[in-house]
Design a protein around this nucleic acid. Structure first.
Lengths: 206, 206
DNA sequence: ACAAACAGTACGGACGTCCACATTGTGCCG
DNA sequence: CGGCACAATGTGGACGTCCGTACTGTTTGT
């Protein structure tokens, strides 16, 4: 039925463009040109530009999830090494385009939060999901004795996720990997070894 | 010479609008309407929308500088209390619009970095300036014995500035003050008391 | 043969910018 | 000391471009 679809090309090339130049700054014409497909194909496959945004967000999420599975949730490696590998992986990805891209989640959080409620909610959910993965890794760190047993895992995980976003954001403005590298150093030298954010009465932390 | 200028009104009302809705999402017509001035006044006072963006950035910077002077650089208060007051002040400001605004610096870093090199450079400079102010405060904390003497002040200050940006960014996506409150808790419970990011060989850290 | 995807173009509106002219406060000159 | 000229600002609309989206065929694989 039908012909081979150009949707894949639109999604993969479009994601690259939007990630580098921003969602609002990338017009539909820019996107179809980057993908080398005719204008009509965009309308054929996406009900609106917002729907396209949600799909590339999903695509980015697939990549990020794969990285999480290979690092944070990879029980074959010791917990704090996994956490470091997760951050190093992002740093390497950021360097590829001279720190210009930033994190798609953070970019969309800043620029699309007021334009599209659907995108804002998806980004918020992804942040929560990342926090859960970091928490999983920290839990393992407690079990293996790499982290103090009384550490509040959810609290630390949320702190790590948001602080990493900030480091990437500042790195984007300064076009330098320094903020992310510094985040990693301080995290491992100062936050985690001392790691004594003790659990408060309830474990909920939300 | 001439009549009383409407430039002030454009800048103050325009800043509010851009801060809440984003730079790209705010059209020139939106801005003049929010300020209640005719369209032509925008052209009269600003050579371009980018020039306007740089001016509201400067206006925002004036406000932020005043807050820094009253907190981080206020030697009448004990250093760590100043740092806490600085963060609390931002938190209060963010709450005013239900966490929708985020930080103008962070927003522009994410959305304007690829559109305007001038804005990107200004934002990067402001981040560096904030880092210097936090470092000033941490230096005072060492002198007063509130922070370990061997702490790497520049390293910690950079970490604090970027992590706060990230907390505000995530808070914006989640429409909740929790990430910023959590940042503050972890910072004071875990990073600063232990505070042992020791100075490396050179003090430069850049 | 039929459904699905391609493909080119058209459309109404919003965008940033520009322009021509009216208005008003200021300072100089008679 | 009164009026005039000028510069700065106000004011509304116009201009060309680009935007997201819709539409109407055409092609192609099953």
């Amino acid at each position: 039925m039908g012909r081979p679809s150009l949707k894949e090309k639109l999604l993969s090339d479009g994601l690259q463009l939007v990630h580098k130049r921003g969602f609002g700054a990338s017009s539909v014409r820019d996107i179809v040109q980057a993908a080398g497909v005719p204008q009509g194909s965009f309308t054929n496959h996406f009900a609106s530009k917002e729907a396209f945004g949600l799909e590339i967000l999903e695509r980015y999420h697939d990549m990020a999830s794969a990285a999480v599975k290979a690092t944070l949730r990879n029980d074959a490696v010791s917990p704090l090494r996994r956490l470091r590998a997760w951050i190093d992986g992002q740093l390497e990805y950021l360097r590829q385009e001279d720190m210009r891209r930033g994190c798609l989640y953070g970019n969309l959080s800043a620029e699309a939060s007021e334009e599209s409620e659907a995108i804002r909610k998806r980004v918020a959910a992804v942040f929560a999901e990342n926090q859960a993965s970091v928490a999983y890794c920290l839990e393992a760190a407690i079990d293996s004795g790499e982290l103090a047993a009384n550490a509040d895992v959810q609290e630390l995980a949320g702190f790590i996720v948001s602080s990493l976003q900030g480091a990437i954001l500042v790195a984007k403005a300064q076009r330098s990997p320094t903020p992310v590298e510094r985040f990693e150093r301080v995290l491992f030298r100062s936050v985690l070894p001392a790691g004594t954010v003790s659990k408060r009465r309830a474990r909920v932390s939300r």
